[in-house]
Simulated scan of single mutants.
Amino acid sequence: MMNPYVEWFENLRAEYGEQLKQMPLPEGLPEHLRDLMAKGDDEAVLFMLKLAWQLGAQAGFSAGHQQSGAEMPHKKSTNVQA
Rank of each mutant, 00 (worst) to 15 (best):
residue 45 V to H: 04
residue 81 Q to W: 00
residue 37 M to H: 05
residue 62 S to T: 15
residue 34 R to K: 08
residue 58 Q to M: 09
residue 6 V to T: 15
residue 38 A to N: 13
residue 40 G to T: 10
residue 31 E to S: 03
residue 35 D to N: 10
residue 38 A to K: 13
residue 44 A to D: 02
residue 41 D to P: 01
residue 35 D to W: 07
residue 42 D to Y: 11
residue 29 L to D: 02
residue 66 Q to I: 07
residue 3 N to R: 08
residue 26 P to V: 01
residue 69 G to D: 08
residue 61 F to N: 11
residue 69 G to C: 08
residue 63 A to D: 09
residue 36 L to F: 05
residue 44 A to C: 04
residue 64 G to C: 08
residue 39 K to L: 15
residue 47 F to S: 12
residue 48 M to P: 03
residue 3 N to W: 05
residue 19 Q to E: 14
residue 51 L to V: 14
residue 56 G to A: 10
residue 45 V to Y: 07
residue 38 A to G: 13
residue 31 E to F: 03
residue 52 A to D: 08
residue 10 E to K: 07
residue 33 L to E: 01
residue 60 G to M: 11
residue 31 E to C: 00
residue 82 A to R: 04
residue 35 D to F: 06
residue 57 A to V: 03
residue 46 L to Y: 11
residue 8 W to D: 03
residue 59 A to I: 12
residue 35 D to Y: 05
residue 62 S to M: 09
residue 24 P to M: 05
residue 67 Q to T: 10
residue 28 G to N: 03
residue 12 L to H: 11
residue 59 A to L: 13
residue 45 V to S: 06
residue 42 D to P: 00
residue 43 E to L: 10
residue 11 N to F: 04
residue 41 D to N: 15
residue 14 A to W: 01
residue 61 F to P: 00
residue 36 L to E: 02
residue 67 Q to L: 15
residue 59 A to W: 08
residue 24 P to C: 02
residue 23 M to H: 06
residue 44 A to L: 03
residue 10 E to R: 13
residue 58 Q to C: 04
residue 2 M to T: 14
residue 5 Y to T: 15
residue 27 E to P: 00
residue 69 G to M: 05
residue 49 L to D: 00
residue 50 K to P: 01
residue 20 L to R: 06
residue 22 Q to I: 03
residue 53 W to L: 14
residue 41 D to T: 02
residue 59 A to S: 11
residue 13 R to M: 07
residue 13 R to F: 06
residue 34 R to L: 06
